[in-house]
């Protein structure tokens, strides 16, 4: 039976539009996939797995998703690093991609020192947003520690490696603290610039207008609340970190995947392309080329 999604549908990056346009069947399957992930014992962040594994999962489903996965393969993407579907997947994926990019950078010592000073300089903005300093410190420490282990590891401290980085992100205490810190950073940036952001804020459930404070209290600060374009824009800006988001949304008539750049600064000449997060409706993972 032909799936409705095979019909040409205009591209959209709006989550609600995407979800509304899905057939009931597809929506069920997506919801089930995501629920399965949430309740499973899947690690908070996994080892990479080949894209073919993802492809297999869609083989009995929509042809459009399969075409889009093949499109990603044709563009040289080979692996997926999955985040658990717990509503924190965007923040967790982004944090990992950020620290990994510092770790693998050509000038790792310099970049990580800059990143550390950026993190330190963010603390006053958290207090200005009304978050208790000593409370923020716990969450800050976990992320800053990882970056510091790249910039200047202590004498008795093993330097950070790709495998100890993954271990850290699989440790719930460290991993969840980092998620909280990024949520606070996002919230503080929105609160600090309410006038600019309020025009772009929509209530994720009603679609109506919402104040910056209500938006932050209900949809940014609590764990488990998914991120949307505003949070992505704000957080990549706060971290001064360019990323791309690839939208694997089953909405493409010709099987291509829409890549959207969240670009803060023009990339340095010769810099590697920015990390790619793979979006599927309601979920983010990390897409990699090996």
């Amino acid at each position: 039976m032909a799936s409705q999604s095979d019909a040409p549908v205009p591209q959209s990056q709006n989550l609600n539009d995407d979800l509304n346009a899905l057939s009931v069947d597809e929506l069920d399957r997506l919801t089930q996939n995501i629920l399965d992930e949430t309740t499973s014992t899947r690690p908070l962040l996994s080892e990479t797995s080949p894209l073919s594994v993802l492809r297999e999962e869609y083989e009995r489903g929509s042809g459009t998703f399969l075409k889009q996965i093949d499109y990603l393969s044709s563009k040289g993407y080979t692996h997926l690093r999955r985040a658990r579907g717990d509503g924190d997947c965007f923040y967790r994926s982004l944090a990992f991609a950020w620290v990994e990019s510092l770790l693998t950078s050509q000038d790792s010592a310099f970049d990580s020192s800059m990143a550390l000073s950026l993190l330190e300089s963010s603390l006053p903005s958290l207090e200005a947003a009304g978050f208790e300093g000593s409370v923020c410190q716990d969450f800050y420490d976990e992320l800053a520690n990882l970056v510091r282990r790249i910039a200047s590891p202590g004498p008795n401290e093993p330097p950070l490696t790709p495998s100890t980085l993954l271990e850290a992100f699989q440790n719930p205490e460290i991993s969840n603290s980092i998620v909280v810190f990024l949520r606070l950073l996002t919230s503080a940036a929105i609160r600090a610039d309410q006038d600019s952001y309020e025009a772009f804020l929509v209530h994720p459930e009603t679609g109506g207008p919402i104040t910056a404070q209500t938006f932050c209290e209900n949809f940014v600060e609590p764990c488990g609340k998914e991120a949307d374009d505003v949070q992505i824009t704000v957080l990549t800006k706060a971290l001064n970190f360019n990323i791309q988001v690839a939208y694997l949304d089953g909405r493409s008539s010709d099987g291509t995947v829409n890549f959207v750049e969240f670009q803060i600064a023009p990339p340095a000449p010769g810099a590697p392309p920015p990390p790619v997060l793979l979006y599927r409706p309601g979920h983010y993972d990390i897409l990699e080329k090996h």
Binding site: V135, C136, N176, V180, P222
Partner: peptide, 9 residues
């Protein structure tokens, strides 16, 4: 409940 944030002590 649904508005819990780890910043609350």
């Amino acid at each position: 409940q649904n508005r819990w944030s780890p910043t609350y002590d």
